[in-house]
Amino acid sequence: MNWKEIEHQMYTMCMVADGDQILLMKRPDHKGFPGYLAPGGKVEFPESITDAAKREVLEETGLQVKNIIFKGWDEYVNPQMNVRYMVFNYLADSFEGSLLADPPEGELQWISKKDAMDLPMQGWFKRKLPLFFEEGTFEIHSVWDEDNSKEADSETRVFAKK
């Protein structure tokens, strides 16, 4: 298949951490992807992917992240629809500002890392949540089966720092 026939969409996600606490959004059902997840969104053209991650955190939380660390990417391929979604993931361990009183994407909550996995969240986010805190970077490659509305295949790789 000609690569020009494939739609590519780029997104970011940035996990904000403060000691043993992480900042998660509780998204309502009507926003899509309900449950808890980290801030993020679409990369706008022509901004850089890192700038998009910082902008999304600011827009969704009110916090200006300072030190962001690239943690890895996950991609979701839908062969029937000729679409590849790529999410570039970051960890922010320093920030300035105050949380928004009325955030646009859902209620913001500081949650301990150890309790986060017990919260209701999308399976794709639960799979990558611990990877934000492992040494090195990660890659998740998932293939979506549009005909059966389910994930057909997935592989996770972790690349340790040397």
Rank of each mutant, 00 (worst) to 15 (best):
M1W: 06
N2S: 12
K4Q: 15
K4A: 09
K4I: 04
I6G: 01
E7V: 13
Q9E: 11
M13C: 05
C14M: 09
V16W: 04
A17N: 01
D18V: 00
G19S: 09
Q21P: 00
L24V: 00
M25R: 13
M25E: 15
M25Y: 03
P28M: 02
K31W: 09
G32K: 01
P34A: 06
P34F: 04
G35T: 02
L37M: 14
P39F: 09
K42D: 06
K42T: 09
K42H: 14
V43Q: 07
V43F: 03
E44H: 12
S48Q: 02
D51K: 10
A52E: 07
A53V: 04
K54D: 01
K54I: 07
R55C: 06
E56H: 13
V57M: 09
V57H: 09
L58F: 15
E60S: 00
G62W: 03
N67A: 12
I69V: 12
F70M: 04
W73N: 06
E75F: 10
N78E: 14
P79G: 11
Q80E: 15
M81E: 15
N82A: 08
V83G: 02
R84C: 06
R84P: 01
M86K: 13
V87Q: 02
N89M: 11
L91D: 10
A92L: 10
F95H: 07
F95G: 01
F95N: 02
E96C: 05
S98N: 13
L99P: 03
L100S: 04
L100C: 04
A101R: 11
D102G: 00
P103G: 03
P104K: 08
P104M: 07
P104T: 05
G106H: 06
E107R: 15
Q109W: 00
W110K: 00
I111N: 03
D115S: 13
M117Y: 00
D118P: 01
M121S: 14
Q122N: 08
G123T: 07
W124K: 14
W124A: 10
W124L: 05
F125M: 08
F125R: 08
F125D: 06
K126Y: 09
K126W: 06
K128F: 06
L129T: 06
L131N: 05
F133K: 05
F133S: 05
E134Q: 15
E134P: 01
G136R: 08
T137G: 00
T137N: 09
T137C: 08
F138G: 02
E139G: 03
I140T: 06
H141W: 02
V143W: 11
W144H: 11
D145S: 11
E146I: 00
D147G: 03
S149G: 03
K150N: 12
D153G: 00
S154I: 08
E155D: 11
T156H: 01
T156S: 10
R157I: 07
F159G: 01
F159K: 08
A160H: 12
K161C: 03
K161N: 10
